[in-house]
Simulated scan of single mutants.
Amino acid sequence: MIHSLAELAQGLKSLGYPVAYSHFSSAQTPPFICYRVIDSETLTGDNTVVDEAINVDIELYTETKNLTAENKIKQFLKDNELIWDYNEIFIESEGVFQCVFSIQLI
């Protein structure tokens, strides 16, 4: 099971696509993956933080609908017991699909 951003990054890289936190410093040819922390939630007790849950978006960018790449990410998330929400849009100005898998790391 994955508990940290470093473990998430390593796992995403194992899927065979370029991966970066937030963005790449140079243009990439799709498909590629970016991931970033959206926010976090803390569990507190006795006036201290006991645990933290980090909400992360994993963004897959493709030129066409790419079920193979999407299914690789879904299988990776399943294998690591991570529950996800999914959203997809077409970014017309970039000519790419953006598929977002929202997860939580605890």
Rank of each mutant, 00 (worst) to 15 (best):
F97N: 12
A9W: 05
I73R: 10
I106Q: 13
S93K: 08
I106D: 14
A27W: 01
E7Y: 03
I2D: 08
G95R: 04
A69K: 11
S4H: 10
D57N: 14
A53V: 14
D57W: 01
S102W: 01
F24Q: 07
I73E: 14
V96E: 03
V37M: 05
L60P: 02
F24G: 00
Q10K: 15
E70T: 12
Y35H: 06
F90I: 02
P18V: 02
C34D: 05
E70H: 02
L5R: 04
H23F: 06
E52W: 01
G16A: 14
I54E: 02
N71C: 01
D39H: 12
Y17S: 02
I38T: 03
L105A: 15
A69N: 09
Y61N: 07
N80Y: 05
Q28S: 11
I73F: 09
D51A: 15
I91V: 13
V50Y: 00
P18H: 08
I89E: 12
N47P: 07
L12H: 04
I91F: 04
I38H: 02
F90Q: 04
S25T: 01
E41C: 12
K78S: 15
L43A: 13
L77D: 04
K13W: 02
D46C: 08
E41G: 14
L12I: 01
F76C: 06
S22G: 02
A53P: 00
V96F: 03
T29C: 01
H3D: 09
E7S: 13
T48Q: 08
T44I: 12
V19W: 00
Q28N: 07
T42R: 09
G45M: 09
K78I: 08
L77K: 08
L43Q: 13
N71W: 04
E94Q: 13
E41T: 13
G11I: 04
Q28W: 06
K72D: 12
K74C: 11
T44M: 12
S102L: 06
E7A: 15
S26Q: 06
Y21I: 05
V50G: 00
K72S: 14
Q104W: 00
L8C: 10
T42D: 11
I54L: 11
N80D: 08
L12G: 05
Y61H: 11
V50I: 14
